[in-house]
Structures are given as structure tokens and as C-alpha cells.
Design a protein around this nucleic acid. Structure first.
Lengths: 125, 125
DNA sequence: TTCATATTTCAATGATTCCGGAAATATTGG
DNA sequence: CCAATATTTCCGGAATCATTGAAATATGAA
């Protein structure tokens, strides 16, 4: 990961419509959603949606595959992870307490799919 | 965290100069750096740097404090963490293997780093 | 107070981005 | 082939953004 790629990825999701698309696809998982379905769900004209998906795809954050007449878009979770790693590089210089808040980002991978809430953390102790 | 805040934060770091500033400050840690030092390190005019820092500060990603004639900027690590959590919300729908790559984001927080004093850090440079 | 340093604000300019109408392309079914 | 569906490409105008010279503000030192 270099700065140019990171900027392209950040720019891609730094916009209302595209961020909504990205988050919708994050929730949809690897199975993805058809371009038209996304456009309908987010109440956006097809051509505008196409442009938004193109930006996300060029950034490498989503991938497209054809299925019949539809084009299915899904998040590239590895690309997404690379971006987050880039942003947090050398984030605490060995002082874990500084960036401890970041630990919860990955908590979904250890808690059966949900991010850990403060309440649940408290309950567990 | 809502979309508006997330977009503001993403836009703030989705630009070459500001991303460089942000990453420099991430590495600098809570101790931060003076505006002038940042400008010199990144070879940027003072007024340009001031504008870039203002955007980052307005986004809540960095905070400023005065120390003598200098204004010291440092990353708000909690704000940064909130943003990453927002982006990964519901990221794997219970299937940990999907977002497993994200686990390494927080890996720095599990390395048992030692605590560094500001004085020692200063001595080193 | 006067000077030097550190940073910000103002204003203007050039560059980039966003959106959606209209037209084009690709696929499937009849 | 033709029609229907799904998506993309082209284009232009409006809006937003980035940069920087010049001037202003704030602090500390003499």
C-alpha cells in the first residue's frame, strides 16, 4: 500500500453516495448486490450509481462480476483491510495504551460477527 | 458516529498533503508536533499547512494546544478509532473468516509495548 | 515598547468533482 | 432479428476544493 492508492480509496468513500454504497456492500458480504438493486435501495439514478460504483471499483474497494444481465458488486475485504492497516501504521510506537481504542475494530472477528459494545464488555468484565 | 462526520473525516485524510500530516502525527503519538515543525518536515508553506491542519482539526481527527509561541497538533486516537469502527460496522455478518484480514489492524495493541516518557522521546529526537 | 518568531486569516485563482439527461452497449428471451 | 432489461459512457454546467501572496494576530524576548 502506498499513499496514492490510499488516497484513491479514501476519496472513493469520502462522499455521501459512495459511502452509502460501500457500507451497503460491506453488510451484503461476499455475495454482493446487483448494480440495479443498489441503485433502487439507495434511490439513485442508474447512471449516477454506475459512476459511483466505477469510482469504488477503480479504487480497488469493490469488484464486479457479471451474472446474466446483472453486474454484481461486492467489497474486496482484503483491500479494505490494507487501507485500515495503512492508516494505523506505527500508530503507537510500542505504547499499546495509545491506540487501544483501535482494538475494537477487529473485535467482530472474535465475537461472532458483532462489534463489541461497551455494555457487553462491561457485562463480561 | 454518523455518515456526515465519517465523510468529513475521510475527506480530511483523502488528500495528499493532509494524509501526510495525519500519518506524521500518528507516528508522533500523543505528544504531537508544532505546526511549524510539520510544515518544515513536509516542505510546505506555513499558510498552506495551517489550512491543512484546520481541515483535520475541524474533522476532529487532530487537536491543537498552544505551547509558548507554537501550536502543537496531535491525533485524537479515539476519533480515529471511531471512524475505523464505523467503516467496518456489520462487516462480516457472523462469518469471521470474511473480515479476518482486519484483525491485523489492531495487532499493534497486543504487542506489549513499553511505556515511553516524553522526556526520553525528546532526547532521542 | 519594539522586534522577531509562529501561526492564522483573507481573497483570488485554478483545478477537481458531482450529477443526471441522453445515447450507447451488452445480455437474454421470443 | 427484435424487444426488453441492465448497465455504462458521454457531456456540460454547477458546486466544491486546494493553494498561496499578502496582511493580520499572538506570543516571548530585549
Amino acid at each position: 500500500m502506498n499513499s496514492d492508492v490510499a488516497i484513491r480509496r479514501l476519496s472513493a468513500i469520502a462522499q455521501e453516495g459512495r459511502l452509502a454504497v460501500f457500507r451497503l456492500l460491506v453488510k451484503a458480504g461476499p455475495q454482493g448486490l446487483a448494480a440495479g438493486d443498489i441503485a433502487r435501495k439507495l434511490d439513485t439514478p442508474a447512471n449516477t450509481m454506475s459512476a459511483q460504483l466505477l469510482v469504488l471499483a477503480n479504487a480497488g474497494l469493490v469488484r464486479a462480476r457479471r451474472e446474466g444481465r446483472s453486474i454484481i458488486y461486492c467489497v474486496d475485504f482484503e483491500a479494505m483491510g490494507d487501507l485500515l492497516v495503512f492508516l494505523t501504521e506505527d500508530c503507537c510506537g510500542g505504547r499499546a495504551e495509545i491506540c487501544a481504542p483501535l482494538a475494537k475494530v477487529a473485535s467482530c472477528c472474535n465475537t461472532g460477527g458483532k462489534h463489541e459494545t461497551p455494555a457487553r464488555s462491561r457485562r463480561r468484565g
